[in-house]
């Protein structure tokens, strides 16, 4: 069987899906395609199914909270980002897709389309990102929390989530802490 030689994912995607790419980052030998949220599903299907690309394995989905999106290094277009780390078993190379997404003006959660229909393995990965970062994956068949208890308030990996619920004890503040510490009764 003749295997088509590998083609450049940047050129292929920008030629086949004009307007889908926000920008491209190449750093330390890694390629990141920053994708517009509206075109995510099309890009994901395209890089999986096109001969010469065949990125057929979803390694991981990770979400990032940049907290101060504008300015700084990279000049982020939005507060949250979702990364899709995908791998081509055929050509032994990796690609990262990235979408930036912001909270709604009314404080509603950021929404990203679910890729479960393309990669079923993304189900739990999306649930983890949804649990920890509060990103809604629209179309995910199971919207429950994955790691935290079901009645948990908030999303622990967000930058504005408190680190711990008890101040570190020192000799000068131990009495203050003990006053608020809940102790179990028999």
């Amino acid at each position: 069987m003749q295997i088509k030689p590998a083609i450049d994912p940047i050129e292929a995607v920008s030629a086949a899906l004009p307007g889908a790419l926000h920008s491209v980052v190449q750093y330390a030998g890694e390629t990141t395609l920053v994708v517009e949220v509206a075109h995510l599903l099309k890009v994901v299907s395209y890089v999986r199914d096109t001969a010469g690309l065949i990125y057929n394995y979803l390694s991981d989905i990770s979400a990032v909270d940049y907290y101060e999106p504008t300015g700084g290094i990279g000049n982020r277009p939005a507060r949250f980002a979702v990364n899709y780390h995908i791998y081509s078993m055929l050509y032994n190379r990796r690609l990262r897709l990235k979408v930036y997404v912001d909270e709604g003006d009314d404080g509603s959660k950021p929404v990203v389309p679910s890729i479960v229909k393309v990669w079923p393995a993304g189900n739990w990965l999306e649930r983890e990102a949804s649990d920890m970062m509060g990103i809604v994956f629209e179309g995910n068949p199971d919207q429950r929390r994955l790691l935290m208890p079901d009645d948990w308030q908030g999303h622990p990996h967000r930058r504005d989530y408190p680190l711990g619920y008890e101040t570190v004890q020192f000799s000068f503040n131990v009495e203050e802490i003990m006053k608020h510490k809940p102790f179990a009764k028999d």
């Binding site: 408190p162 619920y165 008890e166 510490k181 102790f183 179990a184 009764k185």
Partner: peptide, 20 residues
């Protein structure tokens, strides 16, 4: 006894918060 090095949202800061 007191949460140890895990002073974070996920770990109970001392099991005496739930049982004597």
């Amino acid at each position: 006894s007191c949460g140890g090095v895990y002073n974070n949202y996920a770990v109970v800061q001392g099991v005496d918060e739930i049982i004597p």
